[in-house]
Write a protein that binds this DNA or RNA. Structure first.
Lengths: 197, 197
DNA sequence: GTCGATTCCTAACGTTGTTAAGCTACCTGT
DNA sequence: ACAGGTAGCTTAACAACGTTAGGAATCGAC
């Protein structure tokens, strides 16, 4: 049945077009403009068609969140080109905040309360993985043994998130702050070799 | 005209009751339950009455945000009892995160996108002021000259915000992480006396 | 060619924020 | 004490939202 596969292709295609339209609306006009009817209109359909591809709006938004994380991952992995681990750390901070600044609405949805905390953490897992690799290499390189590796990861992740979210201070400044924060944290951990509670 | 003042008193009273009801709904059932009709019903009125006291829902929410910040300020100022500045810093981190954990919905609204970034920063100004005082005293005590005081403040503030928002990790853990993060940041700045870009 | 399934649209429901119109009671001036 | 204006409150409604039901049309298979 060759036609069966074509229908399936078309179905998948409109599904992708819906996601693409939603992404475009979100990035260009913000979350308040992201309505089912608006998305449907942008792909030249009516609202109910969207529900043939997604159970509800949250499911569609979840797809946008996943897309956003893939996008961020791609940018974060770019830092692998830098050979120096310390500079790579600084670039990670910079790129993370840059992403938040260049995709403010998408970033907001990725970290907002539209999706619950657990699924958000699952979506962010790959990006956190990148951080974990870097931090492992960093501690190896500098012969630093973190008292609690996961805690250090979460602290860095939380710090980057916090500073990126304080977007009101402007993206360039936020980038500098994130770098300074990460630099200081790492410096603190290096100076902390003796004891620790 | 004694009655005029009574009417004014009644007006102010119902205004406060509306805020109180809104706060109760928000804290007990979350932002999605915070509807005008629901608030009005809780003070035994109908929806349009709310609009005689607030221009729109955002204005009412803004009042809740202000209330939340006053509440947080009150808890943050409690740390003044601790004489040791380092311990006071740790308590600040702990109390900040505790507040976020004890008033999750209120905290969310205080830092969410319901109110724009500038007004949010204005509302948070007093709390940031507390941090500034503490950081000033800390740097004086330890003879540390921060290369950029405001940057250090924003970094701490952003870090606390980020870790408090990662509430998925449980409040006690988030508190420990916030303390560890702040401790490490301060340690890093102390170890950073020489040069700095 | 006919039957069945898929696809799409129109229409509608319930809920949201918000506004307009009207009723009722009180407050005030004479 | 009574008439008149005003303040407070309600009902009704609007537009827009997410979401669902039902029917029309189109397409594929025998």
């Amino acid at each position: 049945m060759p036609t069966g596969t074509r229908r399936a292709r078309e179905r998948a295609s409109t599904r992708e077009r819906i996601i693409g339209a939603a992404l475009h609306v979100l990035e260009s006009e913000g979350a308040s403009a992201l309505t089912i009817r608006r998305i449907a209109a942008d792909v030249e359909y009516t609202a109910p068609v969207v529900y043939q591809h997604f159970a509800n709006k949250d499911a569609l938004v979840l797809e946008l969140v996943a897309h956003g994380h893939r996008l961020m991952m791609a940018e974060l992995e770019q830092v692998a080109e830098e050979p120096d681990i310390d500079r790579r750390m600084m670039q990670l901070a910079s790129e993370y905040v840059r992403f938040a600044g260049e995709h403010p609405h998408l970033y907001q949805v990725m970290n907002g309360d539209a999706v619950d905390a657990e699924e958000r953490r699952r979506a962010a897992a790959p990006a956190i993985g990148v951080l974990k690799e870097l931090l492992t290499e960093w501690s190896d390189t500098h012969d630093v043994v973190l008292a609690d590796f996961d805690a250090a990861c979460d602290i860095i992740w939380g710090t980057l998130y916090g500073l990126a979210s304080l977007g009101a201070l402007g993206n360039e400044r936020a980038r500098r702050l994130a770098q300074e924060a990460l630099r200081t944290l790492l410096l603190g951990w290096r100076a902390d070799l003796p004891d620790n509670a």
